[in-house]
Structures are given as C-alpha cells and as structure tokens.
Design a protein around this nucleic acid. Structure first.
Lengths: 217, 217
DNA sequence: GATGAAAACTTACACCGCTAGTTTAAGAGC
DNA sequence: GCTCTTAAACTAGCGGTGTAAGTTTTCATC
C-alpha cells in the first residue's frame, strides 16, 4: 500500500495503542511490529511519526504523567498538597504499572514530567522550605510513590505455600496475593502518613515563622 | 570445541560476569551472546548451567540482595533496625542500580530476598506490631528504598539549561546532575528520618505497652 | 572397557529495532 | 491544470536477540 488518501496513523493513536499493549502484556512485549500490527500497518511506518521506539515510550510515559493533578499546590497548604498530589500520582501510575520502570528514571525531556516537578518544587519553596530542602522532599516523595507503583508488594510473593516453609515468619505469605489491594493500599497510606508526619515535624522545628510562605497561590 | 578437560563455566562465574556487564552497560545491554563472549564461550553454552536468561537475572538479583545486612533485627530495637537495614539495602542497590528494576518486582522465588522479607517481618512482629501492620511497614520501607535506588533523582534531570526556561521554578535544575550524590543522599536521609519518625509516633499511639515485644533476639 | 551424563560446540528459527529505497497521494505555487 | 515537494505508506534487508536441537568429546561410574 502506497500513501493512502486518509492517513492511517498519527502520534496520538500510536501512543494510545502502545499504552494499551503495555498495560495488557508488559513493557517487554511491546515491539514496533506488534504495535504496528495493532494499528493495521507495517512496522517501519511508525518511523514516519516517531524517530525511535524510545521516543514512543517517552510519549507514552508523558501521557500517563499528564493525568496527575498538580493544581493542588495552588489550593492547599503544603502538607495537604503533598498528600493529594502523591495520591493522584500513585493512582496514575498504578493504572499503568508496566510503564513505571521507564517513567521512574526521571523527567528527562518530557514536558508533563517537567511541569509536575516545577509545581511540586514551587509549592514547597512558596511554603517557606529552603530550596535544597524542597528538592529533597520532592525526591523523597517520588522515591516513595514510584517504589509503591513499581510493582505490587503483594504480587511480588509467589502463591506457593511450600516455598515459605523454610522461613519461620512467612508461613502466611502465600496469601498476600489474595489481599493485594488492601495490602498495597494499607502500606501506601501508612507510609504516606508517616512521611508527612515526619516532614511536618521538621517544618515546625526548622522553618521559622518569618520564612513561612504566603500560602498557596 | 567439544567438552573441555576443565569446565570453562560455572554458575558463580556466570553470575559475576553478568553483574559486571549489567553494571557497566545496563540491563538492556546484557545479551546471552555478549555474556558468553565475556566468558570466552559461545552463547548457547550458558544453557548448560541455567535454563533461561531470566534464571540468570534471578541469580544476579539475589546475589545483590544477599549483601544486605539483616542481622540488625537481632541486635537493635525496631526503629534502629529499620534504619540500619534500609541504609544497608540502599547501599547494596545503589552499587548496582541497573538491576534494581528487575529486583524490585518482588522476592519471587529468590532465597536471599525471601530471607530478607522474613527477617524484617519477624523483627517487627517481635517488637509488638500487629502482623498486618508489620506487612505494611515492610512494604512501605521497600517502596521507599527501591524508589530511591531505581534511578538517581538528580540524574533524571537533563543537563540542558534551555530545557528549563519555560518552568519558573526549575531554572537551576540543570545543576542537579552536578550535585548528584548530595541531592540523592540528602533526600534519602530526609525521607528515612521522616518515615521512621512517623512510624514511631504511630507505635507510641497504637501499640500498647503489654503488646510491646521481647526486644531483639 | 562400556555407558551415560556433562559441557562445550554448530546450526537454525522466529523475532527484534531500524535503515534504505520505492510508490503513490496530497498540497502548494505558478 | 501542471509541476514540484513532501508525506505516509510500503518492501527488503542488516545485524542482533533468546533459545531449541542436535553433535562431539571428555569424565565418572559401573
């Protein structure tokens, strides 16, 4: 087939389909040929719209990041903003866990990821945190959220009771997979509350009333 | 070359060499042929010692996990044990960051990873944490440590000042890479302290003196 | 000394990312 | 309406991938 009257592909369609394939079968199962086949097209046709496969993955990753709500930093005090942002971030990632290892390498040149970093850092600095500390807090939060989305903790344990016989405290570990949602959610909530509790304590101890910012906005 | 008088390969040598290649060139650059070449052998010879490439990666991942110190749970109170374990865990991972995305998927069937999970969970239960809470704490800590090792926060930002021009608060972001160690270390310490601070507060609030365990050992 | 397993090998298959060159349609300028 | 350029599909093919299959030789055991 030569050039068709109506273009078969565009970047958005490629990104959507790639994300669906990654969600269904994993990052490793995405090949240019499989992606093209899902779009009723031959493999190399993709290169009319993206220079490399990595560029496709960048666009997929950024489309996921774009669904994170960062407007909370304009509306809430910094603790509440961090809490809501972290929850929104985690929700976006857990819907598409297979792209997380790629996405978690950092913002790179992806616009949505850069916008998110900007909003978080800006919100913290406005609240009075020293710049270096704001960087640390943003990083620590990303560590926690990305780690929580990287793979379900519960699904990391095989459903095979015999495997745990040699480990005195893991005799119930084979049941973790059955309680995946409550385990993962409970762990995330516990960790998030603990982190924010600790950060609030440091704020109270080290950020002087004079430095405390003008609030959201 | 048929069967040699002296075996050229064994599992340990394969694992060591694979880890070295992964450290040097990344997980994606490890192929069976490249690994075999580094061992002065042809690709398929590896399959006399491992059934699949994934089995090699499992062994590599477990050799990294094996270097984490989990004896602290026998010597220290639970807060100090968590702190030292988390530091040891992170050190093990940051020495070999390229294997982290693979390793962080969960313990699977890897013996050292299972032993670590057992030690952490056992230590927390002994300290009086309810079993479900101990699971959550272990998961939350793994989220944070794995996230921190998954990729340097600082290295996630490209060293290109022009890229940040459009973002009001990121105008110094291109300098992050130059301060990689202090940024990553500062973020980890801050997050770890905050997490443990928050957990200790919950312990004081919810674990009654009667439930509080027999201490380490 | 015969037997069977072990550990290297060669060959081959189906797939991978990507490049090069081809074909035709769409759109712009005269 | 013709011409020119660009766009978007195609086919063919390169070098690389994991790994299955079968071969050859050596070592250990009966």
């Amino acid at each position: 087939m030569p050039r068709p009257r109506q273009a078969l592909l565009n970047r958005d369609r490629i990104v959507e389909t790639a994300l669906a394939l990654i969600d269904a079968d994993g990052l490793g199962a995405l090949s240019t040929r499989r992606l093209a086949a899902a779009l009723n097209v031959q493999g190399p046709s993709l290169y009319n719209h993206f220079a490399t496969k990595d560029e496709i993955l960048d666009a997929v990753a950024d489309s996921v990041t774009a669904s994170v709500d960062v407007t909370v930093f304009d509306r809430c005090d910094w603790v509440e903003a961090l809490r809501r942002w972290a929850r929104s971030y985690r929700e976006a990632l857990t819907v598409h866990p297979n792209i997380v290892p790629y996405l978690a390498q950092g913002p790179g040149r992806r616009p949505a990821a850069l916008a998110m970093a900007d909003a978080v850092y800006g919100g913290l600095v406005r609240a009075g945190w020293p710049p270096a500390r704001a960087t640390h807090i943003g990083a620590a939060m990303r560590y926690f959220v990305a780690g929580s989305a990287l793979g379900s903790f519960a699904r990391g344990f095989v459903e095979d009771p015999e495997l745990y016989a040699a480990h005195p405290h893991l005799n119930q570990a084979h049941r973790l997979r059955g309680h995946q949602r409550s385990v993962d959610e409970g762990a995330f909530t516990l960790g998030l509350d603990a982190l924010l509790h600790g950060l609030a304590a440091e704020y109270a101890r080290t950020v002087t009333p004079l430095e405390r910012g003008t609030g959201p906005g």
